[in-house]
């Protein structure tokens, strides 16, 4: 018998270990499910960690109202097929209840507003741990974050006061009101996720694969036309063959031109690309060098 684990097996085993630590250490955990490939991968890992038992947590989706319909449909079908509980809370409702002001402009995004709904949801259910699919290779502030990331009562991350995190020991002890964000796939890269999806034959929403769509070209980014963005005179709109590298809101996720229609095609495109995932497709990170750090300090995932 060969007693060596392949690197994907090592990453998988580490993620399962982290999932089980969450189950063992917390009273009311939740898995934050966005409908993107990273959180779909999390669900797959949770199945491996807990089956034939039920998940010791519900799936929670913070719906901005600007989601791709394909991603929402996929979300509902997935939750149904695995028979796990799905909780959906809408940013729309928070806006109404709290009288929040929506951002305006061409690509008015609810990205910042979803933090309010997330924090309200954590309070409503008393979640003490929220599992998310963030990876350290995505962004510089994320590269610094622990697997168990302690957040204060306001959901805030204090990057200068992180707990040491040693060996395989995860300290999830918190005081009332605090919560922990847990990132089981911290050490995975974009390519690792795709290789794992291929190996495990994980289903994904159709928008990850090449399809034709009406596209607005704006400041070099390809944005799907929808009721959520403003079209001005002189805008260039055309039909293009595109796919999505990440799936967030329709207003802040850009598409890439692609004819990749299988996982193999996608992996060869990613291997060849010279642009990072967030750089290519996330309009929300472009605000400043510390955009992600600032949002995390304020309670963002």
């Amino acid at each position: 018998m060969n007693y060596q684990l392949d690197y994907l097996d090592q990453l998988e085993s580490e993620a399962i270990y982290i999932f089980r630590e969450v189950a063992g250490q917390f009273e009311k955990p939740a898995l934050l499910f966005s409908g993107g490939k990273d959180s779909i991968t999390l669900v797959h890992l949770a199945l491996k960690a807990f089956r034939p038992g039920k998940f010791p947590f519900p799936l929670v989706h913070i719906d901005t109202g600007h989601n791709f319909p394909e991603a929402l449909e996929f979300r509902d079908n997935l939750a149904k097929s695995i028979g796990e509980k799905l909780i959906v809370r809408k940013v729309e409702d928070t806006i109404k209840a709290k009288g929040l002001k929506e951002t305006t402009g061409k690509l008015a995004s609810r990205n910042a507003l979803q933090t309010f709904t997330l924090l309200d949801t954590i309070e409503e259910f008393g979640f003490d741990a929220c599992i998310g699919g963030a990876r350290r290779d995505e962004e510089k502030a994320r590269a610094k974050e622990r697997v168990f990331s302690i957040r204060d009562e306001f959901g805030g991350w204090d990057p200068k006061r992180q707990r040491p995190e040693l060996w395989n020991i995860y300290n999830g002890k918190i005081n009332k009101g605090e919560n922990v964000r847990v990132f089981p796939i911290s050490n995975w890269t974009e390519l690792d996720v795709w290789n794992y999806i291929r190996r495990e034959k994980i289903d994904l929403p159709s928008i990850y694969f090449s399809h034709e769509r009406e596209i607005l070209e704006y400041e070099g980014q390809l944005i799907a036309t929808s009721e959520f963005i403003r079209i001005d005179d002189g805008d260039t709109i055309s039909r293009k063959r595109v796919r999505y590298r990440t799936v967030g809101d329709m207003t802040c996720t850009a598409a890439v031109e692609s004819t990749a229609s299988t996982i193999d095609d996608i992996i060869s495109e990613i291997t060849a690309t010279r642009i990072s995932e967030r750089g290519e497709t996330r309009i929300d990170d472009r605000i400043s060098e510390a955009a992600m750090e600032d949002r995390k300090v304020n309670g963002y995932f």
Binding site: R136, D137, K140, A141, R142, A143, K144, P159, K160, Q162, S186, N187, T189, E289, A290, E293
Partner: peptide
């Protein structure tokens, strides 16, 4: 150097993971 304070001070404060 991923944190604002690190860039400002030109030092590394916390461990950063790179792949």
């Amino acid at each position: 150097d991923g944190l604002r304070a690190e860039r400002e001070q030109g030092i590394t404060i916390d461990v950063a993971y790179k792949y």
